[in-house]
Every structure is written in structure tokens, then in C-alpha cells.
Amino acid sequence: MSVNLDMNVLIQNVFNALSLGGLYALIAVGYTMVYGILRLINFAHGDIFMMGTYFAFYAITLLFLPWWLGFLCAICLTGLLGYSIEKIAYRPLRNAPRISSLITAIGMSFFLESFAVVVFGGIPKSFNVYPKIFSQVIIMGKTRIPILTFITIIVTALLFLFLWWLLYKTKTGLAMRAISVDIPTTSLMGANVNKVISVTFIVGSAFAAVAGILWAMKYPQVQPYMGFTPGLKAFIAAVIGGIGSIQGAIVGGFLLGFLEIMIVGFLPSLAGYRDAFAYVTLVVILMFRPTGIFKIYSEQKV
């Protein structure tokens, strides 16, 4: 096992980890917001992420929209998709046992994947619909960092600022935070629970779409099962941070990004096991601190 230590490589890895972690965090926020409110693991979230990339791909190649408009359309459409999924599949089961809604979410994930195979085709498509300048590389001394990495980091930061504004400066955000504590009481206080849940799904799905587009530009291809692994890892990030906590999801996302990049960066012989790190981390976290870093829920009362 050779350990690779070099300052330039380290800087490069830090940037890679920041961008990968940011993407995980963007997806994880969607998981954690839904879980915080409905106590539901939205298994389909990774596939919503995948649908976002397809929407962007077809908006640009089929409708000939300029790239920025295509991306914007895709983000809006994905938000709408998240809204419809909640309304069609999850709302009828809101008072059912929690396992039933979990099973439905798994079914939804399965549905979106098969839908993508049928409608978009199972063969990976090259996602070369973004301006070429994004893939250029900035050279600083010996370090080479793609512009896309910077864009990813900046976009992620801006979206988190937006999320902070939404949660802490708007009435909807207040209602969201209140509902995550107690649905019945909040609805008694006059908040429209359905509306707030819809907003949660729209925002979470739109974030997933942004993450999806950035992801597709980074590994320039799209395919129907591309959402599974990032989705599961982002979920793990949310659990590591303490599911239900938005700060937790962000911290967990970056933690996971760093862990993955750094282990592969410094121990290249473990590259084949790259995907397993997240799962092992999850298992370890669940064993020793099941509530994650930011503990939100206390023990159930007997």
C-alpha cells in the first residue's frame, strides 16, 4: 500500500472533496428536510436527482434551449416532479404505519428508474450540453483545478445561503421548522401543513436537480441508475449529520466527500472499495451514535 503525500495533490484533493461533499450535501438536504417533517426516508430522492439531469439533457438537446435556460427549466420541472410524487404516492399514506410509506418510497424509486429506462433508454448518454469553458482547467503552479469544481463550490454555497434565508427569514420556513417538531400542534396554530410539505418537496427536489446537473457535468454522462449510489451516500451523509437536522446534512455531506476523496487519494490501492467507505461509515455511526452528530430526536416515550 503506497501512501501518496504531495502538497499539490493535497490541494487538488481538497478542492475535489469540497465539490463532491457539496454535491452530497445538496442531495442530503432533501432527504433530511423530508425526514424531519414526515419521518419518511424518501428513497426516490436519488432518482429525482437522476430525473433532473435527464430533464436538463432533453431541454437542451430536444428543445434547443440555451444551456442556462435549459438548466433552469430542468430545476423547475424537477421541483414539480417532487411535488407530484408527494401528492400522488406519499400523501395517501401519511397516516399509515411508517413502514408502509417507506415501502411506497422504495416502489417510487423503482418506478422512476424503470420510467427512465423506458422513456430515455437504458444506454448511458453523454452529457455534453454545457459550455465548454466549464471543463477548462485553471493551473495554479502545479495544481490543476477544473473551473467546474469552482462553480460547484460557489453554487453550493449560494444555495445554502438561500436555504438559510428560506428557513429563518420567511414565514414558510418558520412553519417548516415548527412542523418538524410537531405536526398536529402546528396545524392547530393555523399553518397549512399540506402546503408546507409541498414546499419542502419542491425545494428538496430542486436542490437535487442542481446537484444532478453539476454531477452530470462532472462525470459527463447520464443513465437511469445514476441516482442510486449518490442518493444512498447522500442519505448516509444525512444520517451521519443527524437526520432531520439541516446543518447536520451539510456537515455530513462534506465529511463524506472528504473521507472518500482523501482515502482514495492517499491509499489508491483501496480505490475499488471506494463506494464501501460510505456504507462502513454509516454502520459505524449507527452502532455508536445512532442519532448522528447533531442529535435531534430523543428516545421514544414508553
Binding site: I41, L232, V239
Partner: peptide, 15 residues
Amino acid sequence: TGDYFAIATLAFAEI
């Protein structure tokens, strides 16, 4: 318990 068990077993299966 519950969802956490589901996710842990999923993670183990993937490992």
C-alpha cells in the same frame, strides 16, 4: 429500530 435497521441492512448488502 425501524428505518435505521432498514438502512443498515441495505448498507451491509451493498458492502
